[in-house]
Each structure stands twice: as C-alpha cells, then as structure tokens.
Amino acid sequence: MIKVLPRNIIRFIALVMAQVLVFNNIEISGFINPYIYVLFILLLPFETPTWMLLMLGALLGLSIDIFSETIGMHMVATIAMAFLRPFVLSVFSPRDGYETGTFPRVSYYGLQWFFKYAAVLIIAHHLVLFYTEIFRLHDFFATFFRVVLSAMFSISMIVLSQYFIFRK
C-alpha cells in the first residue's frame, strides 16, 4: 500500500503533463484528439473505494481543464468515467473475482480483458466529453464520428502504452 501511493502520484503528474504538453497538440485531420490521461483512472487499484475514484476523477479532469481552458468539461467526463468503473469491472470480472495484490493491467489479466475494460470506459469518457463540449444535438452524427475516431486513437495509444511504458 505504501508503494502504491507515490507511484500513483507520479503517474498522475506524468499523465497530466504528457496530455497537456504533447497530446493536446496532436490533431489528426483537424479534429481527432487522443485523450490518454484517462489511463490514470484505468490503472487505479481494484480496492479503491468509489468515493475516492470520484474525487480523483474530479481532480484529474479539473487539472486537464485548467491547462486547456475548458473549465468543467473534462471534469464532467472523468467523473462519469470514474463512476462507471466499478460497474464495468464487475461485468468483466473473471469467474473467481480479482485476486488481491493484482492490478488492472495487461500483465495480470491479459490483453483481451484489458482491451474490453479500457474500450468501454474510454468510449464512455469520450461520449460525455464531446457532447458536453458541443452542448447541442443538431450535429449529432458529426460529433459521434469525432467520438468514434478519437476513441479508437486513444484506445490504441493506451493499449500500446501497456507494452512500452507502464509495463510494471
């Protein structure tokens, strides 16, 4: 437990910096943006209580918002994602539950499990984020297109990061 805390603090700072300084400047064909900072929520330990998930989600979203001048928008999306995480975890749980001492990662539960888990939460996050940003329904399908493409991009970045950066 003592090792988990500093590791998560460092991960939080590193992901926010990476998102703000690098990934916010990546745009493919004008409107596809990868949002990789949500990886922080994905990698939190299984035992994290829901209230703490929600508070951390709010804090994470707000930090991104402050640096990208969209106060509140990322916050709404990350809180929603944090709220959904326990449900998604229980839906995809293996037959005999999650073992203590393991973390939600490719190295413990395999690529297929991690992909399903990450994809559902990232798509939920992007849906909330993009529809909150535009705040109207009359471009419904254009926005949906943006959600799908950006989510595909974020998911691939996050899954790849499991093999290269966050291996342990």
Binding site: M55, G57, A58, G61, D65, G72, M75, V76, I79
Partner: peptide, 10 residues
C-alpha cells in the same frame, strides 16, 4: 460532483 462541474462550465 457532476453538478459542480456543470456550474463551473456555465
């Protein structure tokens, strides 16, 4: 928390 976030947006 969501209500707070929406207030911030507004």
């Amino acid at each position: 928390l969501e209500i707070i976030a929406f207030i911030l947006i507004a």
